[in-house]
Amino acid sequence: MNAFRLAGDITHLISILVLLLKIYATKSCSGISLKTQELYAVVFLARYLDLFTDFISVYNSVMKVVFILSSVAIVWCMRRHRAVKRSYDKELDTFRHYYLVGACFVFALLVHEKFTFQEVFWAFSIYLEAVAIIPQLVLLQRSGNVDNLTGQYVFFLGAYRALYILNWIYRYFTEAKFSRWIACISGLVQTALYADFFYYYFLSWKNNAKLNLPA
């Protein structure tokens, strides 16, 4: 465990806490894509199938459980909680996310480290995580405004991605056996998607204008 990875995990956790706080404090999920949140829940459920078969550390197991529970809790709130449900921007959140799930699964069947149930689902979760933010970006683009907490949520998610890349660079140079090319390439794609968002988010903040993402 290096400092970059720990900081990456912490910012990832903070992003989820910020989102839960926003939903809990404002009883509103306006500006949040349910589809992205559903994809994240699927990502964690598919990736952490090893929770009962491989023990890494207490830290690792606890974080896995926290990520699964918090992502499922967010989806549950947005779907079932009466007040929160009402604030959901359903007509703006129209990205067909099932296509992403299907495409990532087919890709995982083709590109994986080993053709086993667990390995295919692991690769699937990595690919799906890389593109899971797309419905959220589409929603932000359509609504054209980002409230503070939603902005911070996306900011912390982006920080997590950037720190994980530093972690991989660090591990590449310090660990003889480190080769996670599936995770690294997918991570770069994911970070590029965020970089695009950050650029327009920065512009809108600088000009004090509404966030305007190009199609």
Binding site: H12, D50, I56, K114, F178
Partner: peptide
Amino acid sequence: ELEPPPKDEL
């Protein structure tokens, strides 16, 4: 065949 390293990242 090389044993793949354990998946220790989250």
